[in-house]
Design a protein around this nucleic acid. Structure first.
Lengths: 124, 124
DNA sequence: CGCATGTCCGTACGATGGTGCGAACAAGCC
DNA sequence: GGCTTGTTCGCACCATCGTACGGACATGCG
């Protein structure tokens, strides 16, 4: 396994170190990112962004996934505070949360949406 | 399980449907996103962004993770074409790939970095 | 040449996450 | 009251992923 106690490029390591988010912060950010990094949940967010408000069944219909899958995805998003549920009778209507992080919406949903449409130039 | 063949709000479903990325496109985008949605890999990218170029051992040192973990993370990122390896003797020096998707760098690394530092206002 | 070093790979293990099924529950409708 | 519908939950299954370990390989050093 070898120990490598001595930096090869001490300056570069130092430079990396202070711009580096702590493991804790990184884990917070990635936990949110992980939520979005799932086809169903990402498309749920897109759908809610487009349609303002939808019930579970309609979301399942729009995404062409099972209602279980939609419900599960929404639960995850709701637990994280990314979407908001309004109960009306036996139905549940979802919309993006009031405090939906704008950076997420702007920079991930929109920009990454473009990335997808431009498509795949990522492989060297 | 109930079928829900009939939309409750047909118009909203339609609206959601055409702005909706296909399951295939979504899966492409999320596969890249999944790569970043990991503390180690995200911090690897941050480190490379800050230090230009680093070898595996130094990266492990900077992140305070095992060299295996660093190597594994780098392999993932390399397979996806996000980082680039330069071999010199027995060492491998990594840097962000030439064609590292700018939207990713701009909108995810930078902006989400801010999100992390501002911290947690996401819970309703 | 022999030995240590830096990195990589194959494998196995443990953990985590998404899906489907069945049941529960509340609410409308007859 | 019974019956159906929309949604949620508990559970078990299966896949996937990250890590540690051991060994491989190439390289520098004496």
């Amino acid at each position: 396994m070898s120990v490598h106690t001595h930096p090869v490029d001490r300056a570069a390591v130092a430079r990396a170190r202070d711009r580096l988010p702590s493991a804790e912060v990184a884990s917070d950010v990635t936990s949110v990112l992980t939520l979005i990094a799932d086809p169903t949940r990402m498309r749920l967010l897109f759908a809610l962004d487009a349609a303002e408000e939808l019930c579970v069944g309609d979301l399942a219909l729009a995404l062409e996934v099972s209602e279980d899958a939609a419900s599960y995805g929404l639960r995850m998003l709701r637990t994280a505070g990314l979407v908001r549920r309004r109960r009306e009778g036996r139905m549940g209507f979802y919309r993006l949360a009031d405090g939906f992080p704008e950076p997420l919406r702007q920079h991930c949903l929109l920009r990454l949406g473009e990335m997808g449409t431009h498509s795949e130039e990522d492989l060297t």
